Simulated scan of single mutants.
Amino acid sequence: MVELARRIFSSPLTVLGLFIVLVIVISAAFAPLIATHSPTEVDLLSKLEAPSAEHYFGTDEVGRDIFSRIIYGTRISLRIGLLVVLIAFPIGTILGAIAGYAGGRIDQVIMRITDVFLSFPGIILAMSIAAALGPSIENVMLALAATWWPWYTRIVRSSVLSIKHSEFIEASRALGANPFRILFKEVIPNSIAPATIQASLDLGFVILSAAGLSFIGLGAQPPSPEWGAMLSNSREILREAWWAATFPGLAILLTVLGFNLLGDGLNDILDPKQR
């Protein structure tokens, strides 16, 4: 643990990523204490006010406080990112482990299905699924999870192929362990490290993709303080109220940057080839 902490703090970019992620998590956890106004309260007398001591990031077209909406928006974005990864990661991991360990026709069937999903651009497939299900945050999460699991399947399958004939697995077979026990007790725990690192990187990209779907009207609906929806609503007032689009855009940028820096740092720390 001490060595892990030393390696983390020896990389300035990893520390920066960790700091950004911690700020985002704290903002989400303590949103009611940090926000200065209600995220959905309309005040037409204060509409399109520039950033000030009263409204740190200004107000939008109906007088809602943008700072408070961004703070509450961290909850929505983190929930989307975490739930999509938590749905896609185990599905992809189990399928990839089964394909790599079983081989033969099982491997071919699983990987051909995976290839079908990977043959479409992920965001286009997610748009199609979200449009078919209807605009909502829940449907966006399902659409993104349906397009994200194939990546984990490929990563885990490659890891399993490299260890399936290792001595500790052969020893388990010799001791009479059944295939399911070997798969879940030996194979998966020793092959998910690369997929785990990828998952930390994917959190930022999932949030970015969800914001994109909300931007075109397939995700969060008004008056939800979701960052992509806030950007979409600010298009018509961009010239007279630059702050309405700037601050939600910066929130998305910093969130994606934070998770990317942290994921890259974890890759350098946990990948034995980088040591």
Rank of each mutant, 00 (worst) to 15 (best):
N267K: 15
L266D: 15
D65I: 05
A99W: 00
I34D: 13
L22D: 03
T196P: 10
A130C: 11
G134T: 01
E49M: 15
L82D: 00
W149T: 06
A210G: 11
I24M: 00
I20F: 10
W243A: 08
I24L: 00
A5P: 09
G249E: 04
L133Q: 08
R173W: 02
V84Y: 05
I207L: 03
V15P: 11
L183E: 04
A130T: 15
I66G: 00
T59M: 01
I237S: 02
L144R: 00
I192A: 06
A145G: 11
S172L: 04
R173A: 04
I123L: 11
S162N: 04
L254V: 09
A29K: 01
I197M: 11
M141S: 04
G263D: 06
G103E: 00
P90G: 12
W148I: 08
H165Q: 11
D60Q: 03
R6W: 10
E236C: 02
V256Y: 00
V25G: 06
A50G: 13
F57M: 12
P32L: 03
I237T: 11
L78G: 01
I66T: 02
I216Q: 03
I113A: 15
P135Q: 14
F168P: 11
L86Y: 10
D107S: 05
V23T: 07
G100H: 01
P90I: 13
P135S: 15
L4Y: 14
V156W: 08
